[in-house]
Design a protein around this nucleic acid. Structure first.
Lengths: 348, 348
DNA sequence: CGAGGGGGTGGTATCGATTTCAGTTATCGT
DNA sequence: ACGATAACTGAAATCGATACCACCCCCTCG
């Protein structure tokens, strides 16, 4: 790799002049400089430039898991904007782990101009070191409890969950199982709250036995579903608050042989690419995933460009109900007898 | 952010000593230096370090599309290894575009110690600049025609496609539609070849009308399927060579109302997270996606660590048939009449 | 004709860490 | 007790690009 000095020597000018030419200013020997640049196939060193300028033209994107379709979509949104801005993106998975998140965030200091973060837990603020270092941060999809002076792009999880519950209630369901996420995450908490609010609005008490906590991963949705099926008085519907757990739930129902929606209705939060093609097509609370990423990157760009004083922005996008056919009236409205308990108490 | 100089001053030693302490060497005032480091919350600047050492501790991962589950899985594999090695990962999508790939690769020069690349096209070698700059490259999932001195981690696409075709032939299918990928990509070409080889081994001529070219994206699978359904003499089975196009195919069949596998059998290359839960469960050629990423990262690490002379490695992983129930004997073995042509010629 | 200004120049310090080089101390064997 | 060796030390050069500074040239205007 050739340096600016070699270019300068070849063109017979100083490095200053080459640097000026590079930054687009008028230069007497522009032609000669350009020729030398091309002859040597010169490319300015990003590293040296960063050292001098303090700008890396790189951002960090810290998410729980790329293989979750929602985060993959959001990442794509982030990436599409960052490409236009000619920014590179560091991608890191935290696997929902607070420790991993801390070490990842630590490692980003001094390497990036900003960070888009999906925090693993609302309570655990791993951003202090980053913020002390003056790195702008935008929160994506999840909040941090201790912090409200960071931009964020969330969805109306409460409203979405409310809608989901309302949908099931409207069909006549009264015993609705909830596969919930960690209550220490924003979506976990808000979706739980929205669900409960809808039930209470309908005058229904929430039975704690019907709320099964998961960790946003497939396996936990599977296990939670088995627990719900094993209840002495089974549920007639299940609302799963995230896509991966919904997949787990569907798998469990499939393996146990519960027919959807005849015996049990299912609705999930977050659409699945194949949601429409499932048997039956899955009803979901959908949301603009790519757009969330796009907006987060736009907010981050504004901060990076130095609008520090500007009011913090908290964008909340709307969800919508995509009713397909995995939800139907509960079986006991057609058939007065509750279905047999398919899973024995010892099954898990 | 504090610098090594401030630490040195506080500890009453030279920057040299601090630097030595940092790199783990024995130092007289180790305790004082360490105390100063902690007091100032000092972290060595990666940028300055990179400038001096020429090492960035960063790699580039250039793939067509993160929202393709295969690439997401491979990315996760890459990321898991790179985390252990304490390397950062630049993620970039090329969207299957050669131009985008070129600009992305250009932008990586001087920023990374190595690159894992899924080339957009076999013919278009965008790696020359990178290689001239001495950046190690590992090819993932796809080859480059002009280049055989790069490590690669592929799957046995030919064998997988052969298996898929064999599976359908074994069930009695003779008119099999192929939704093929761009022939200028390794998977596109090899899967086509494997498919053709199986047909020829069975003594069947390949009817060009039954081969519909797609571009690895959902929409093209959808369109290709409509074309296959619109044929004067329709196919009894479809083999789709990639997951996204398979999704498109399934959507088309769903919209048109073709029953699988009663009227038409379907098999895809690459498993889908929900493959098992589709109606019917989808038969696929599966492969170890995460492992492909893991192996690619391991190969890259070896190159980065300077084993330049070492023989180039071309790893080819095996695929396997996951037979679920989207493939069955063709309808005409049960019912002598071919099914009615569901799509009119003008439908697309 | 001389002052002023626009447009351009190159030398040099700088960003923050590493590394070479030329020492300076301790430690040890004899 | 003296020379040799090992164990450390700090000043200064270095990585490659940028930015400040002083300066130069030439044109224009009063």
């Amino acid at each position: 790799m050739s340096t600016i000095g070699e270019v300068a020597k070849l063109a017979g000018v100083s490095t200053t002049t080459v640097s000026r030419h590079l930054s687009g200013r008028q230069v007497r020997e522009a032609a000669a400089v350009q020729a030398s640049i091309e002859a040597l196939d010169f490319r300015a060193s990003h590293v040296a430039r960063s050292l001098k300028s303090g700008v890396t033209r790189t951002i960090g994107l810290v998410i729980p898991d790329v293989s979750n379709p929602f985060f993959a979509a959001a990442a794509k949104g982030v990436e599409s904007v960052s490409r236009q801005l000619d920014l590179n993106v560091f991608l890191s998975n935290t696997d929902e782990s607070v420790e991993r998140e801390r070490s990842v965030l630590q490692g980003l200091i001094g390497r990036v101009d900003g960070v888009i973060l999906v925090p693993a837990r609302e309570e655990s603020d791993n951003t202090v070191a980053l913020r002390r270092a003056g790195v702008p941060i935008v929160l994506l999809d999840r909040r941090l409890r201790a912090v409200d002076d960071l931009d964020s792009v969330l969805v109306d999880s409460h409203g979405g969950a409310f809608m989901a519950a309302e949908h099931l209630l409207g069909l006549g369901h009264r015993r609705i199982g909830l596969i919930s996420g960690p209550s220490e995450t924003t979506p976990g908490r808000e979706r739980y709250d929205g669900f409960v609010a809808a039930l209470e609005a309908a005058g229904i008490d929430v039975d704690p036995a019907l709320v099964q906590m998961g960790d946003f991963k497939v396996e936990s949705g599977y296990q939670a579903t088995l627990r719900l099926l094993g209840l002495p008085m089974p549920v007639t519907a299940i609302f799963s608050v995230n896509n991966l757990m919904t997949i787990g739930a569907l798998r469990a129902l499939h393996h146990v042989g519960v027919r959807v929606p005849d015996e049990l209705s299912v609705i999930g939060f977050d659409d699945l690419e194949l949601g429409e093609l499932l048997s039956p097509p899955l009803s979901v609370i959908a949301r603009p995933a790519v757009e969330q990423g796009v907006l987060a990157m736009r907010l981050l760009r504004n901060r990076i460009q130095g609008n520090w004083t500007e009011e913090r922005q908290h964008i909340v996008l709307d969800t919508h109900l995509t009713a397909r056919s995995s939800c139907a009236p509960p079986p006991n409205t057609r058939d007065r007898h509750a279905p047999a308990n398919r899973v024995s108490a010892g099954a898990y």
